[in-house]
Nucleic acid binder design. Structure first.
Lengths: 143, 143
DNA sequence: ATGAGTGCAAACAGTTTGCACAACC
DNA sequence: GGTTGTGCAAACTGTTTGCACTCAT
């Protein structure tokens, strides 16, 4: 919708970034999904909207958007980084090591604890993220 | 000391791995340091002991040791993985984003909480690690 | 002696970059 | 119109792998 389009443009402008077709597309793709796509997946989805987008631009855009605080980059283990729009409430991620599915976990309270802990050590927390690797329990806990 | 050497050999053997000069060296280097070296740094330190060690072998050794549960791999952001011997009590890491220094933080209680949370979602936690990016506070909090 | 481990160099994956052209302000 | 962004291809970094040889068991 035009409303959303305007929102993206506004967000970009407020971040001091030029409003380009490519950035709009990347932002809209990320906004319109609840999963956590990586650069390659973003390229594919972006190209479904605008055929001309290149992988280099996707990376440059992601980097710019991250610096602007509009999106968050998830550095997982042994696989390409994934991205999500910067969440209002901070959360961590559980990765299903069998399927690769990523689940968001609430973590405000734990994060608050860590901020205090870090402060006691003389540090200001810039970011924190917990990555949990887990496996779905198949056998019901029985007797 | 010979005692240590024997320990390394024993640990390797118990893990079902052949005892090679290279694996002994990598294990001893990792045991003898409190920082968290990456593969390149490990190569340099290993070569100080055994000139013939190659980078490929360092990687293959690290991978084998990790699978055996003898060491832990730390996947940081935008930089090569770092390694530490598998800690008795689990902990998280705070990275000073200015100096790169890595500080270990206790986290058993928080980890326990997450295990419960994951269990409620039907997941068994395989591993969890929190990466905190922080900056040393220079200006005292005043007005 | 046989199979696992090694060194080397080449391959690989993800990401970044130099350059010429295009598009935003 | 000038500067910032883009596409393309080439470069780069961290890591993995094929092969011939070596060594632990």
């Amino acid at each position: 919708m035009t409303v959303e389009t305007t929102d993206f443009a506004k967000a970009l402008r407020e971040a001091g970034l030029r409003v380009t077709q490519q950035r709009m597309v990347v932002l809209s793709v990320l906004t319109g999904t609840s999963d956590h796509p990586n650069a390659d997946e973003l390229l594919t989805r972006a190209r479904a909207v605008d055929e001309t987008v290149s992988l280099a631009t996707v990376y440059r855009t992601l980097s710019a958007l991250e610096d602007a605080g509009l999106i968050r980059k998830l550095s997982l283990e042994n696989e390409p980084s994934r991205y999500e729009i910067a969440p209002a409430l901070d959360h961590d991620h559980l990765v299903d090591i069998d399927t690769g599915e990523v689940i968001e976990l609430p973590s405000e309270d734990v994060h608050r604890l860590r901020v205090e802990l870090a402060a006691r050590l003389g540090y200001e927390v810039i970011s924190q993220h917990t990555l949990i690797r887990a496996r779905k329990i198949t056998t019901p806990p029985q007797g």
